[in-house]
């Protein structure tokens, strides 16, 4: 059951990721990215990361991608005219990417020490309680720093998006 779920959602994630870079219309790309995020949320659940799965949906799919969609709709971005860069990229890029993926697969599968196998429900340390304990004790300072970062980002976005730019 675990293997079936993993294969289905991994295939969906890879197909959506390919859709993101192969489709020419930005809206199609954005929806493909939402597909990747949704399937990754399911994979997080299989890994016992309940809170991260929910945060993935709330933050990524529910907020960041809505912003992307909003901007695409607002600018009425159409199809890209020449989506691919120089032909060199098209001819060399594909083999390079495949080579790098092969290298990663080799590294992961043959050089790492043996790892656990995932069965659903085996690890339950990713619930909201555990995350909260870790964030507000061990990682309190980074957490506060990110809140300052968010504040700066809000101010920066407001300044950039103002009507008149002097």
């Amino acid at each position: 059951m675990d293997l079936i779920l993993f294969i289905v959602f991994a295939m969906f994630a890879v197909a959506s990721a390919l859709g993101l870079i192969l489709q020419t219309h930005p809206i199609n790309s954005a929806l493909s990215l939402i597909g990747v995020m949704g399937s990754l949320a399911v994979l997080y659940l299989l890994l016992g990361a309940e809170f991260i799965a929910a945060a993935q949906l709330v933050v990524y799919a529910g907020a960041i991608m809505v912003l992307f969609l909003f901007v695409i709709m607002l600018l009425n971005a159409g199809e890209e005219r020449n989506p691919w860069k120089a032909p060199v990229v098209a001819y060399i890029g594909g083999p390079v990417v495949i080579f790098l993926i092969g290298a990663f697969v080799y590294l992961i599968n043959f050089t790492l020490p043996p790892m656990r196998s995932v069965s659903f429900g085996d690890f339950t340390g990713g619930g909201p309680r555990e995350i909260g304990m870790a964030i507000f004790t061990k990682y309190l300072l980074p957490f506060e720093v990110t809140s300052v970062l968010i504040l700066i980002a809000i101010v920066g976005a407001m300044v950039l998006a103002r009507k008149e730019i002097d």
């Binding site: 293997l3 994630a13 860069k85 990417v97 790492l112």
Partner: peptide, 26 residues
């Protein structure tokens, strides 16, 4: 059960696809 290597491999594939998109798209 699913070996954890599968998850890492999936992550590598997604990362490379993202990198390729970053380089080739306009």
């Amino acid at each position: 059960p699913v070996p954890l290597n599968y998850y890492l491999t999936l992550s590598a594939i997604l990362f490379m696809i993202g990198a390729a998109g970053f380089i080739i798209r306009r």
